[in-house]
């Protein structure tokens, strides 16, 4: 198994998620020809991408499946990636991830109708308990999945993956201004959904 390793070159950068992209340029360069280096890169980003998938899909199993799809797409298309920093690699992964999650949601839209009944039953049980988080999870899930995928993407990247607007803009290939206005619209929609859902629960 590949171990987590770091090669120092004196270049160090800590992003807003606390990731230390030490020696990222060298690692990206090595990963283009060396599977072991690519595996190292993969390990450094697995958790973030898996987390993003869970935050978008609310289902562990589906998140693992989509994470697999994302990284397989990444390894197949790595030659297309023109960046030379790990941060741009991470943003590139988020781009693939957003597309893969949206694909998954589209494919499973019909199935979700079936699941909804099951979830509602599960929700009742969870709401009967006094734990706040599971309740919030269900509220959030319901509200998020009712939004358009592009809004789900922006909300998740901003509030769960803690990306800056400029970084989201890079992931989505849009201008920061467009992202800001879409974020405002997404939040307004979310506010309505969550307020409505809360009233229903109460």
């Amino acid at each position: 198994m590949i171990v987590d390793t770091k090669v120092k070159t004196g270049v160090s950068e800590i992003d807003n998620q606390g990731n230390n992209f030490e020696n990222d340029g060298q690692l990206i360069s090595n990963a283009r020809k060396d599977p072991a280096a690519f595996a190292q890169l993969y390990r450094r980003h697995y958790e973030a991408i898996f987390g993003y998938c869970v935050h978008r899909l609310f289902e562990r199993q589906a998140a693992e499946d989509v994470t697999s799809t994302i990284f397989l797409r990444a390894v197949e298309n790595f030659w297309r990636f023109s960046g030379n920093h790990e941060k741009s690699f991470r943003n590139w992964l988020y781009t693939i991830a957003s597309n893969a999650v949206n694909d998954h949601l589209r494919r499973s839209a019909r199935r979700r109708i079936i699941f909804k009944t099951v979830l509602e039953e599960a929700g009742k049980e969870l709401c009967e308990s006094n734990e706040e988080s599971p309740e919030n999870l269900l509220l959030l899930k319901d509200a998020m999945l009712s939004l358009k995928p592009k809004y789900q993407t922006i909300i998740t990247l901003r509030f769960f993956e803690n990306l800056k607007l400029t970084e989201i803009a890079e992931v989505l290939g849009k201008s920061p201004g467009t992202v800001r206005s879409q974020l405002a619209r997404a939040l307004a929609k979310l506010e309505r959904k969550l307020s409505f859902a809360r009233r229903e629960v109460q």
């Binding site: 198994m1 590949i2 599977p35 690519f38 595996a39 993969y42 390990r43 697995y46 958790e47 898996f50 987390g51 869970v54 935050h55 609310f58 562990r60 998140a63 693992e64 994470t67 697999s68 990284f71 397989l72 390894v75 197949e76 706040e132 988080s133 599971p134 919030n136 999870l137 959030l140 509030f159 769960f160 939040l187 979310l190 506010e191 969550l194």
Partner: peptide, 30 residues
């Protein structure tokens, strides 16, 4: 919303087995 999001408890702990299995698959396809 940021405050609300912080309270949401996701099941997002990494399953090492999945990570390692996927790693092998990636190396296979590298």
């Amino acid at each position: 919303f940021e405050s609300f999001a912080r309270k949401v408890n996701f099941d997002d702990t990494v399953d090492i087995k999945h990570r390692d299995k996927l790693e092998q698959l990636l190396l296979e396809n590298f």
